[in-house]
């Protein structure tokens, strides 16, 4: 088991995820819409990076680029030094919509990636793996329920299990807690934290919630308004095993304040030089 999750950035064998001068433009009916402009940043191996920015600044485009679902117009995306040219089995994804398959039970949903990704696990191994994850997120006993029988928070927990069941190297989280109520969301943060302790994975989280970014990530990247580039980077200075209490420390308050300020700049509401 990997306990050392917060190795200093960029020390072991280069970054796990790296974007180099990525520029992307969508062709829409009302003309070209540039979303990313010369965007560069890197995520260290096993690190947790949160990406925040104003609405519609291209954060979801970023996840699709890292997942290999989209190719950038210019620039490159690297996963562990290899240029991303298409989807790969070493990536896991979770979205705001948990997209569980209604015709499968919870455990059958979690097992799904193992049916796609090449592996030599037997059927019972797969089930055991899914069961282990479901227990970890507090869904033991719900394995044979249908998604429609679960609450929103529980569905999202199952969705997280599905995203990491095949032991991906990179976990892409596109606002997975965005549609949950505030308290459920805090529960899920702690579950995410617990999952990370057990799983050897590099995480990139897209979010609108600054507290979430500070609680979960080691580094917060603030994107500018569209077309997005990296406007600001914050290394979160909080203990490795954070509690919700830590969010109320003076240090956390200061970081949140700074991030809030950066968002306002990105939204174009305040001048960067003020």
């Amino acid at each position: 088991m990997n306990e050392q999750v917060t190795l200093p950035a960029d020390t072991i064998s280069g970054p796990r995820i790296e974007l180099r001068a990525v520029t992307h433009t969508y062709q829409t009916e009302s003309g070209p819409l540039p979303v990313l402009d010369d965007l560069s940043f890197a995520c260290a191996d096993r690190s947790f990076t949160a990406v925040v920015g104003p609405s519609g600044c291209g954060k979801s485009t970023l996840t699709r680029l890292v997942a290999g679902l989209l190719k950038p117009d210019e620039g490159q995306v690297f996963l562990h030094g290899e240029e991303v040219s298409g989807p790969r089995a070493t990536v896991g994804m979770a979205f705001q919509n948990p997209v569980l398959l209604e015709w499968r039970t919870i455990i059958e949903n979690v097992v799904l990636p193992l049916e796609i990704v090449p592996n030599n696990l037997s059927k019972s191994d797969r089930t055991a793996r899914a069961h282990e994850l479901l227990s970890l997120v507090g869904l033991a006993g719900f394995e044979n329920k249908r998604p429609s029988e679960l609450s929103g928070g529980m569905r999202q927990r199952a969705s997280l299990c599905r995203a990491i069941v095949h032991r991906p190297e990179v976990l892409i989280l596109d606002e997975p807690f965005g549609a949950l109520d505030a308290f459920t969301r805090e529960d899920l943060w702690q579950i995410m934290q617990a999952l990370r302790k057990e799983e050897n994975v590099t995480c990139i989280l897209i979010t609108h919630d600054l507290r979430e970014s500070v609680f979960l990530a080691e580094r917060v990247v603030v994107l500018s308004g569209r077309p997005a580039h990296v406007q600001f980077t914050l290394d979160v200075d909080l203990p490795e095993n954070r509690t919700l209490e830590d969010l109320y420390s003076p240090g956390a308050t200061e970081m949140l304040h700074e991030l809030r300020h950066q968002i306002e700049i990105a939204q174009g509401r305040v001048d960067a030089n003020v």
Binding site: R64, A67, G68, L69, G86, P87, R88, A89, V91, G92, M93, F95, N97, V99, L101, L112, P113, I116, V117, R162, H166, I172
Partner: peptide
């Protein structure tokens, strides 16, 4: 919904 496709497409 595109997400349904993406969860499998992202795995190749």
């Amino acid at each position: 919904e595109p997400e349904y496709r993406d969860i499998l497409r992202a795995l190749g």
